[in-house]
């Protein structure tokens, strides 16, 4: 099957790749672009492990065709850290021990970033409902919610 030439910006870099018409954005990111930080947990949009931000919107990349990303600006987990330092969300996930196995972590951090981009001061309930599309089987969510709260606090009041 002939492939399509798809032009995107990924984490600030211009990235062109060849993708097949039926390929999901998730598969294209992992198999064509080498962004293996985006994970597949279900392939049906239920677990959020493949969360990426496309043109400012949080999406499950397993539910989007690669071809639909033509011209889009995409942020993956590899693009969350700024320069040589970790993003406050990443720091707080580490400090709060908000990951155990860590496979859901990229999706959670991307989803939480999308939340804080639009609501810098979310309450616990807002965080829990925003992250309800991301499954974590290890932590019971307690430390994840606390890490997001703490990161929001740090972003609002940088030390």
């Amino acid at each position: 099957m002939s492939k399509m030439h798809i032009h995107t910006t990924i984490n600030g870099d211009q990235v062109d790749f060849l993708g097949s018409p039926q390929q999901s954005l998730l598969d294209a990111l992992r198999d064509e672009v080498g962004k293996l930080g985006t994970k597949e947990g279900c392939g049906t949009g239920d677990c959020g492990a493949c969360s990426v931000i496309v043109d400012g919107r949080l999406v499950c990349s397993c539910l989007m065709l690669a071809a639909e990303a033509e011209g889009a600006e995409i942020t993956t987990i590899e693009g969350i850290a700024d320069g040589d330092g970790l993003h406050p969300l990443q720091e707080k996930f580490l400090e709060h021990a908000a990951l155990q196995c860590g496979v859901c972590t990229p999706g959670f951090i991307v989803a939480a970033k999308a939340l804080l981009d639009r609501d810098p001061n979310p309450d616990e309930r807002t965080i829990r409902y925003w992250l309800a599309g991301n499954l974590c089987r290890c932590t019971g969510y307690d430390k994840i919610v606390r890490a997001v709260q703490d990161a929001a606090e740090q972003l609002a009041h940088p030390a």
Binding site: G41, C42, T44, D46, C47, E124, R125, I127, R128, Y129, L131, A132, G133, N134, L135, C136, R137, G140, Y141, D142, I144, V145, R146
Partner: peptide, 17 residues
Amino acid sequence: AGFLDYRVPVASDLPMI
């Protein structure tokens, strides 16, 4: 046989533990 219908707890189902 999927996470939509085999429903594991999500963040909004739980309080702090």
